[in-house]
Design a protein around this nucleic acid. Structure first.
Lengths: 202, 202
DNA sequence: CCGACTCGGCACGGAACGTGTCGTACCGAT
DNA sequence: ATCGGTACGACACGTTCCGTGCCGAGTCGG
């Protein structure tokens, strides 16, 4: 039916974002150019520049369009199990294509594009963090966490090591690693026995 | 005072790195170009390309030349106090010019330049991490830490939240934040009383 | 004192940027 | 059905910077 050119509006927007993800996966973010996206999408460069101020902004929108179904927090009543499951889902997303490598590049770009950094925080980081904090809050109200514990801090201590591995050491994110972090977070690393995980054996 | 051209070797290397830092501070990493560095340093572009394969590699060397005096770990016998002091020094370095903003951009660039990422790890991240782990090891041997605790993990839990704040939320790194992380790390956030101070002996 | 090397300067082709212009197709309102 | 406004694709343009090639001159080691 329509191989007619000059389709408009949301139609073009979606086609451009889809092409961005395609090309991004094929050649990587570094080599991705607006020009190439326009060419493959059969769009004029203006049509892209009219919608997005930068390559980063375009990719941010494209990635967000990909995971519309927000990672929703379970609440089984067991805070550790819920955090674990939720974090598994997060690293599964971050760890593999198409989201993983492109998200990594996007965070990289945000390091010298303050506008992009702000948008990334507002549209992805903060909402995700808020969900974690909200779940922690319920647990704290139910006495599963130390009453005075700073929940933003708890979120940072959980996410931080993951991002450290993701952005700095570039080692793969594993479920086992998540387990270790959760254990340490709830048990502390001071001397004496861990309090959460039963220490089996002797 | 030699304004004679054609000085050679380490002389030129140092001049180029110094100019890189200067220009980087003035206009930011994103706008920094090899061409501009060459022009201001009074060097040919070849002289730069002969030494460094990329802008990132040049900045990495430049930044490392800046903090020759490695952050050395104190060992007062009190692991928490030593970690605190060492981490204070680290965030003071990361938090402000000239090192801070340029280091941030460098980590960003490393997200889509695997060679740069490897060099950054090998020459900066890993050495720093090793020092932390070594200090933790001594503490563990002296019974100040849980015997089986994974020390690489401990390092990641300490560094991770700092980098999270540095790279993701872009909020300023404060000593207070370091204190909070250390408290949480040693006490855990499970219910019950904080255990910050180690009990004597085993 | 001489050959090998390194340097600064300049020029080049190429890629991608962001903008401008033009003719056309779509759309909503009359 | 007609008509203006708008979004669009295509193309061209000037600019910046890349990475490389070439040249003449200065420097260094033997």
């Amino acid at each position: 039916m329509t191989d007619t050119p000059h389709r408009r509006g949301a139609d073009r927007t979606e086609a451009i974002m889809r092409t961005t993800l395609e090309l991004g996966q094929e050649i990587g973010y570094a080599k991705l150019s607006i020009e190439a996206v326009a060419a493959r999408a059969g769009a004029g460069k203006h049509t892209i520049y009219r919608r997005w101020p930068s390559k980063g902004a375009l990719l941010l929108d494209s990635l967000l369009s990909l995971h519309e179904s927000d990672l929703d927090y379970p609440d089984t009543g067991d805070i550790i199990a819920d955090l674990r499951q939720q974090t598994y889902a997060a690293i599964d997303l971050m760890g593999r294509p198409p989201f993983g490598p492109l998200y990594q590049a996007l965070v990289g770009e945000a390091q010298y594009d303050p506008q992009l950094a702000a948008a990334l925080n507002e549209r992805f980081i903060t909402p995700q963090a808020n969900k974690t904090v909200a779940r922690l809050k319920r647990a704290q109200d139910q006495g599963q966490l130390a009453p005075g514990f700073n929940l933003d801090l708890a979120m940072a201590i959980l996410s931080g090591p993951l991002y450290f591995q993701f952005l700095i050491t570039h080692e793969p994110l594993t479920h086992e690693y998540v387990d270790q972090i959760l254990d340490a977070l709830f048990a502390g690393m001071g001397p004496g026995e861990a309090r959460v995980r039963p220490a089996p054996g002797r």
